[in-house]
């Protein structure tokens, strides 16, 4: 699994961090998403897919 983010679309909601704090974080100054792990292990695939699905900015893309 490969995760990509589009910072320009990120609204700083932090939904992804609430779901998968091992994979996503937010910048201190403006809350924009930080990708901690672009190729998360299989045990995190489901939750990362959900993070991509619920992102209110449609800023997270997942490719297999």
């Amino acid at each position: 699994m490969k995760v990509t983010i589009d910072e320009d679309k990120c609204c700083g909601a932090g939904s992804c961090v609430l779901l998968a704090p091992e994979v996503f974080d937010q910048r201190e100054d403006d809350g924009i998403v930080i990708l901690l792990d672009a190729e998360p292990g299989e045990d995190r695939h489901a939750v990362v897919r959900e993070a991509a699905a619920v992102c209110p900015g449609a800023a997270i893309a997942v490719s297999e």
Binding site: A13, L18, Q26, D30, G31
Partner: peptide, 9 residues
Amino acid sequence: GWNMPKQAR
């Protein structure tokens, strides 16, 4: 949060 998205979360 007012320009503090992470802190609000």
